[in-house]
Nucleic acid binder design. Structure first.
Lengths: 228, 228, 228, 228
DNA sequence: AATGAATGAGTGTTCATTCAT
DNA sequence: AATGAATGAACACTCATTCAT
């Protein structure tokens, strides 16, 4: 082999080699998202990743290992993003929540995460470890974060004292609903993300009941801080 | 031959024949729920239904037809139940909603319906007709029912005027969340249905914020006995 | 049971019962002709015979037995017909052959017999007994009949002495060709039975060569009687 | 890399790959010949070709495609051979025909072609396209070839003027008969190919009648009584 | 005698996985 | 490291056959 040949070959070659797993993981996510574990085809994943069938097995022992790697990758991408974005400064509870849920809607509706959620719903019964991971790394984390915010809100008297129990889940519920609804019924009845998120927060903060007393001082119309 | 004799005559044999399809549908629902469409095995369905492989094809043309029949059966079971249970009398909005959601939690968490929901999430992308059916027959129906209740509440001044837009979905969201959470994470972190439903309603009605006024501080938010 | 009931029931019943096998055999012949042994369906045969699937097994042990019965039936029908029709009077060789082949074309092209021939060609390799039967009962019989006619023709100096060896087969060949050609290519290129038979005989009798000696009286072209 | 190196490089592996389809076609021909289309088993074909079941589907989309490829292969092999062998020089009609039929017997009795013929008889009713192909590419071709020879013979006064109509088919008939007879009854009553071909030609050329005039009186055209 | 629901062995076909190159 | 031809276990589905009625 001449030096020229090496020069021609090597770069593209090396490059590709390092990126392979990512391309494969991305291809796998798409495929598993569209077809589920059983319905996914290794051949199709290979084609999506622009790789031969055999190459898949150079990096992953078998279909299940690839599947778990795909899920793991999606989960760690999520937590990495979450860690970066979800530190709240010292704002009012409402402000904090609005900021936080803005991020959550954005993150959860990314292709990667809605795919992850779908996979979890579909394959959950057969993959308890995966479920446990998701629960520990994503759901619990989110729940604890919300629990802290609520607790702080109670301290500051911005939140009712009794709003501790199942409230964190209730806060997350509409996010998950939005993701799934969009995933499944998005074509038939698209929801507006911003509007949905806003209504969500309004309801959380104030309920749907009539504001008990309009005469009272400082009565805040929902979402409209009385900025005097 | 008397009618009784006829009735006696065809017991095990005919009887079975009439029941077969139902047994198969039940077995199919289980299997599809656990494995999705692609992962489901006709052999396993047959075994679950205590029937031979060939018998399946006596009643359903092929795997897909069986799948659709399973889904159709679950949907019509749902709507039949819903029609029977969901007429509201002339009560306050809160009472009506509490009664309604009691029913909804009960119904949606039945094995049949949570399975149906899982199937929809899993197979949705490949079965647009099924998705459309579910949307029309179940989601839309529920949304309209809720919309009517909200509208009536507004008329009666029990509900804020601005609570119309996405509210129906927001009301349903926790139900769907509860179903999916229980389905996927039920083993790891079971939720108490009654407690969850109650919190859900509380939040809907009053939000999590401090009761805005009512005179002084320490104002008793609803559900919070003023324990001074 | 009253006498009337008996009267109503019995005749149709008895009738049918006796005819069943024939109806089944006819249905079987059609089905085996169209689909071959392996491709034939017992269900379809039952339907053709207007009988239930189970009934077939009342009369025939299994598919193969039915098949053999169908073939046997066709063969004995053939030999019965042949015996009735094929006795030749004391005519010239040519007259005898013309009469004989007229019958042969007519018989061999009947649905029953062309089906039988097709079955034999198709299934021969797997049914040596059937082949042997057909050979003994139909081919050999025909061959011997022709051999006798030829021999008599030689005696009478109407036929060349050297026309003994393979001649009988050569005489039959066009009949078989006609049957198979009609069966397979009949739609694309139908042959006229009478014309084909006539040409066949002409060729047998005179060959295609020019009449060797025109000097002789009345010895013109074959088939063209010297009509003085 | 020289051409030789390339040639050496891919020996067993590539080689095999190129030959696979042919081995499969050969195995398929045998199997379809023995069992017909419906009766043929893909598993058995694979075994015959010394290949796994799956490999069959690497080269042919399904059973029917393999079947059609087998038939196509046999037909094009036939026409290729025919084109190579069947040009006649400028000989007498009889010489030409003898040479031609020598070739035809040889070719038609090859395993490949008798199999093809059997397949056609068996599967014809269900495969009209195949029938049409065979008719156009083989039968018609042969018929036209013979028609040309006859026409030339008439020009040269070696053949009777009236020998045009169905004669070509009559010439082919014994070939087809020989093939089928050998295929079906070959074990019971083998025919000698050369002898059969010779008799065939003799009969064609001269008929079976007495040589019309060897000088002797009363020795007129066969079958034509001297009607004085 | 007749039925047809039920069976299960067998078929064509797919696809995750291996391995010679 | 990468390929893709080859494999064979597993699947959906069919159909001859049985048997309770």
């Amino acid at each position: 082999m001449t030096a020229e040949e090496i020069a021609e070959h090597a770069p593209a070659y090396r490059r590709r080699k390092d990126q392979r797993p990512d391309e494969i993981l991305a291809a796998g996510l798409e495929e598993f998202n569209e077809h589920g574990f059983a319905g996914a085809s290794m051949a199709r994943i290979a084609k999506r990743a622009d790789v031969s069938r055999g190459t898949l097995y150079l990096y992953f022992e078998n279909k299940e290992a690839l599947f778990l790697a795909v899920a793991e990758n999606a989960m760690s991408a999520f937590t990495r993003d979450a860690a970066a974005k979800m530190d709240m400064g010292d704002h009012s509870t409402e402000e904090t929540l609005r900021a936080l849920f803005g991020q959550m809607y954005a993150m959860m509706t990314s292709t990667k995460n809605s795919a992850l959620l779908r996979i979890l719903v579909s394959e959950g019964p057969n993959m308890p470890d995966l479920v446990a991971q998701y629960h520990a790394r994503i759901l619990s984390t989110g729940k604890q974060l919300l629990a802290r915010i609520i607790a702080r809100g109670v301290e500051r008297s911005e939140v009712r004292e009794d709003a501790a129990g199942t409230v964190p889940q209730l806060l997350i519920a509409p996010v998950m609903f939005y993701v799934i609804h969009t995933m499944v019924f998005g074509d038939l009845e698209p929801l507006d993300e911003n509007q949905f998120a806003q209504s969500h927060l309004d309801m959380i903060m104030r309920g749907i009941g009539q504001p008990p007393c309009q005469g009272g001082p400082g009565s805040q119309g929902p979402g409209q801080p009385a900025d005097t």
